[in-house]
Every structure is written in C-alpha cells, then in structure tokens.
Computed example of a mutant assay.
Amino acid sequence: MITRIAKTNRKEEHNLNCLICEAPLSHSLSWHALFFLHAEEKICGECKESFIEIKGTVCRKCGRPQDNEKLCRDCFKWEADAKTGSLLQQNRSVYLYNSFMKETLSRFKFRGDAALVSAFAPSFIRTFQKHFRQTRFALVPIPLSEERKIERGFNQAERLASLLKRPVLHPLIRTENEKQSKKSRAERLKEKTVFKTDKGSVKGLSVLLIDDLYTTGATLHHAARCLKVDGEADLVSSYTLIRS
C-alpha cells in the first residue's frame, strides 16, 4: 500500500485528486461536491482505509488501545513518580502508527507537504469534539526550535491546531534542538530542560497541548511541567494526531 503514496513536494492547493496518492476523486463527486469540496473528500477511500483510527477501550490516561481502561504500564510509571504524576490530565489521539501513517507523516513533517494536514482534518476535528468539546481549553501547539522550523518551513503542530478553530496560544519556547526521532526512549525520559515559558504565561487556564505524535509521552510531560510550574496553568491535557 505504501507504493500508492505520491512522492511530491506539492504546495497547498485545491484540486480533485487524493492528497496522498493523487488518484482522481472527481469520478465519485456530484456537481455540488465539485464546488463545495469537503475535507472528507480530500483523500480517496483506499488511502482513508489505510489509516487506523483508535476505537474501543483505551488506557484512561494516555489513550493507548488495550482491553481495559486501567493505566497502561507507561502511565503507571508516570503516575508513580511524584514529579510527573499530576502533570498531564490525559491524552487522546486519533490514529495508530502503522506503516502507511509513518510514510504519510514523513511527507507531512520532513518533506514539506503542508497540504497533507487536510487529509487528517475530518477525523482530527471529530475526535476533538468527542473528547474535548465540553471544556474551554486554550490550545498550545508543541513548538519547534527556530532552526527546525526554518528547515521544515512550518510547524506541523500549529497546522493541526489551526483545524480546531479555537484560541491558540504560543507560551512555550523550545530550548533544545536535537530531533526527538533520533533519541532513544531512555534519552527522551532523562531530559530535564526542553521548554521554557514566562512566569504566569497561562495562569489559571486549562491548556490542551497539540502535537503530531505521542510516543513515550516525555515531550508532553516536559511541556506540561513547564506550563504548570512556571506558566501557572490550572490543568494541562494533550491531543495528538497519532499514538504509537
């Protein structure tokens, strides 16, 4: 299935081709849809089915799929540590990390295909409304370092946050520059200073961190600590596109 993914550096544009494999979509659209193209129609059915949405029971803390709602092994460790146990209220994610998602995410993040955010939009918005609509969160995208943002041309977390049509704040500054994907789990967990923020930057607010991928939870816990301790946030949760 990976071979269906088009290897392009497409700029953001409106067309009637699948954003991922570029197969024509017009054959299945009505004239009404041609003029009012919805987000659901930005990818073909085959590509849509290759993404695996998270359904059923999950860890009540991080949203990892499992056969019960008890804390998973990772969350049990986070909660058992007095320094991290109360930092992150909960995380919820939309998709599992399979091989098709891995290739699509690589195009989105590392090959500058910012238009691909529209491929995720319907499920990302729907899942947000399911889990977070009742709470008045301020959205805070996980920031990139300036060097990394220049290299990619955009921040993928900011693009995802923009889909939700809610207030977006940028109180966090990233203080380390090394790619997280190159670090081992142990290295991610040992990091102490990843972000900084001004004192009281989100005082009294309920914050929802937005990111593309939840792996170990280390990045989100680092951000939550910064926002709660220095930013004085009331509570911090997180919402990610993918749970690996």
Rank of each mutant, 00 (worst) to 15 (best):
115 A>E: 15
95 Y>F: 11
166 R>N: 06
79 E>C: 02
147 E>K: 13
115 A>C: 14
50 S>R: 09
129 Q>F: 04
46 E>F: 03
147 E>H: 10
171 P>C: 02
104 T>D: 11
50 S>Y: 05
157 A>D: 00
71 L>K: 02
119 A>I: 10
162 S>Y: 08
71 L>Y: 06
175 T>N: 09
150 I>M: 10
100 F>R: 08
165 K>E: 15
156 Q>F: 08
169 L>K: 14
112 G>E: 08
56 G>V: 04
90 Q>A: 06
64 R>N: 11
42 K>H: 13
117 V>D: 02
146 E>S: 11
135 T>V: 13
111 R>F: 15
161 A>V: 03
137 F>N: 13
57 T>H: 10
146 E>L: 07
143 P>V: 00
170 H>W: 05
103 E>N: 13
154 F>Q: 08
132 F>E: 06
139 L>S: 04
89 Q>Y: 05
120 F>Q: 08
102 K>P: 12
97 Y>K: 02
86 S>Y: 01
58 V>P: 08
106 S>N: 13
128 F>T: 05
155 N>L: 00
132 F>G: 05
87 L>T: 07
49 E>H: 09
151 E>K: 10
112 G>Y: 07
172 L>Q: 01
129 Q>G: 15
109 K>T: 08
121 A>P: 07
163 L>H: 09
121 A>F: 02
98 N>P: 12
74 D>N: 13
133 R>Q: 14
130 K>G: 03
79 E>H: 01
93 S>L: 05
174 R>Y: 07
144 L>H: 03
164 L>I: 11
56 G>S: 05
129 Q>P: 07
163 L>C: 11
64 R>G: 04
107 R>N: 14
121 A>S: 14
162 S>E: 14
52 I>L: 09
103 E>V: 12
72 C>E: 11
82 A>I: 15
103 E>I: 06
58 V>Y: 06
157 A>H: 00
70 K>W: 03
160 L>P: 14
105 L>G: 04
51 F>T: 05
105 L>S: 07
73 R>H: 11
99 S>K: 09
60 R>K: 14
104 T>P: 13
74 D>T: 05
133 R>M: 11
76 F>T: 06
154 F>C: 09
73 R>K: 12
43 I>G: 13
60 R>L: 12
142 I>F: 00
96 L>F: 05
84 T>C: 04
144 L>R: 06
88 L>C: 01
167 P>N: 04
142 I>D: 01
49 E>S: 12
103 E>A: 14
51 F>Y: 08
118 S>Q: 15
151 E>L: 05
136 R>D: 15
90 Q>L: 09
